[in-house]
């Protein structure tokens, strides 16, 4: 399943780059994407492994149980990645690729509208750190389908969010920051 997803994304990248008649870049981008997807799935695997050690999260429980689960999982993840730092998932080449993909997503005729959707009610460039909890009061920035489908597909354990122009990879159960890409959205 994962291999097929990566291959599909590579095919998309290849098609996009072929239009620009730059065949060597196709393979480089595909390799970067494959490596990025592997790092994301490695994180997801760790998340799942650690979450299995906790009592199962009730799907219709009291908020105290949900909160306790979030905090317990975040503690486990932080302990399992004590030296996690910015760039572990989005290395320099992956960051550059993400910026190119987003620039491409926003370059079409609907680009201004898509950007407007992302920036509307966007909480702005709040300070975050890898392994740190998301700011409690920050609303979720809206991310349109047209943008999400340009980015690498994610496993259920993580999702994308924007804080200002910064793209975060967020753990959806622990609500901690896995990594981020500064200046991900073009100015």
């Amino acid at each position: 399943m994962r291999a097929v997803a990566i291959l599909s994304l590579c095919a998309v990248l290849a098609a996009g780059a072929a239009a620009g008649a730059q065949p060597p870049a196709v393979n480089v981008d595909a390799q970067i994407l494959a490596a990025l997807s592997k790092r994301i799935h490695d994180y997801s695997d760790l998340h799942e492994k650690l979450e299995r050690t906790l009592p199962p999260l009730s799907k219709d429980g009291p908020p105290a149980g949900v909160d306790a689960h979030q905090r317990a999982l975040s503690t486990l993840l932080q302990k399992a990645r004590p030296r996690a730092e910015h760039g572990d998932v989005f290395g320099p080449t992956a960051r550059a690729l993400i910026r190119r993909l987003l620039a491409r997503a926003l370059s079409g005729p609907d680009g201004a509208k898509l950007r407007g959707v992302i920036m509307e009610d966007n909480p702005g460039p709040l300070r975050v750190r890898v392994n740190g909890r998301l700011p409690d009061d920050a609303p979720r920035s809206t991310i349109p389908t047209q943008v999400l489908q340009m980015l690498p597909k994610l496993p259920e354990a993580v999702e994308y969010r924007f804080l200002g122009r910064r793209l975060l990879l967020v753990d959806t159960h622990a609500l901690i920051v896995v990594d981020f890409v500064d200046d991900a959205l073009p100015k």
């Binding site: 799907k59 219709d60 429980g61 009291p62 908020p63 949900v66 979720r140």
Partner: peptide
């Protein structure tokens, strides 16, 4: 909505079943 955290999916009174 955009102000709702994902933990709400698991809240007993919201019937979202995760």
């Amino acid at each position: 909505g955009n102000h709702d955290e994902l933990g709400q999916r698991f809240y007993e009174h919201f019937n979202m079943e995760g």
